[in-house]
Design a protein around this nucleic acid. Structure first.
Lengths: 154, 154
DNA sequence: CCGTATCCATTCCGATACTG
DNA sequence: CAGTATCGGAATGGATACGG
């Protein structure tokens, strides 16, 4: 009865995105993946979450094509988890949340973490760029052409 | 025991934002508020959600300073809900989710809704701008100066 | 070290009935 | 119309214990 209402099939792209990413952990896992985290244990320590639900979220993110597994960069028999192109495309969302939080959820002068520099040599290029000097990445609005296939309302 | 772990106090701005906005409905309510929705019933019809949890979410969003109530623009004795400046600052996040959804959650050519034009004359200026011609708003990355009070790591 | 499985409490959410 | 009250089912999340 109290079936959870799926928002897929909804005509609004925001609704579909929320359906996929709108939970407590998905976005934080993706954030950590942008920071270069790859291993189960790294995510688990970083997020301090129970292993069973981490496993569940990783599975869902892989099923959604946001993360993909590879056979373990070091010798270990286990998986590495890395962002796909679809996952990397979430970068503006992460940055948007980061900046909103910085500007609205911190007391003036209260210290906060910054975008982390990649530790290994893998993809995620957008983030690496920041490292050398003190500048940070910010989303701004710009004009683009109308997108095809649009209908109206909600 | 299974106390929900609060992410406030976390040094990462993304975590704090997720703690506030990372649930199924908060972002969709804010999206509707950007579309000009103001009344309880409007949100309820638009989102198709149960009235009790809508009431709960509206209360929490007001408590967070994201929405604010005013005594009802028409005669009615009830509340209007409108975005505060803090709520309007979520605009890049909404747009980011929208675009990610458009590009990654829709089949090629599948129709989707577009940003709705404001119906009344209230604030939310950023969205109104779009109406006249066919252009849409998109987030892009740009460089900004280093933000003050930053420490390191997640 | 990487997960899976089990258990349990809490929270979420939908349906409905009810009040003013 | 704008909520509140209550209910029950489902999902979430934490704490282990366990096996590869």
């Amino acid at each position: 009865m109290a079936q959870r209402k799926t928002l897929q099939g909804n005509a609004c792209p925001v609704a579909r995105s929320v359906d996929v990413m709108g939970d407590r952990w998905a976005l934080l896992i993706v954030r950590d993946a942008f920071d270069g985290l790859r291993r189960f244990g790294e995510f688990q320590r970083s997020l301090g979450m129970a292993k069973n639900i981490l496993a569940d979220r990783l599975r869902k993110l892989v099923a959604q094509g946001i993360l993909e597994t590879s056979p373990g960069a070091d010798g270990s028999a286990y998986q590495d988890y890395a962002l796909t192109a679809k996952g990397q495309a979430l970068f503006p969302v992460i940055v948007g949340l980061r900046q909103w939080g910085e500007q609205n959820l911190f007391a003036p002068g209260e210290p906060h973490s910054v975008l982390k520099e990649r530790s290994s040599g893998a993809p995620v290029p957008a983030l690496v760029v920041r490292a050398q000097d003190g500048r940070a990445l910010a989303p701004v609005m710009t004009w683009v052409e109308k997108l095809p296939g649009s209908t109206d309302s909600t």
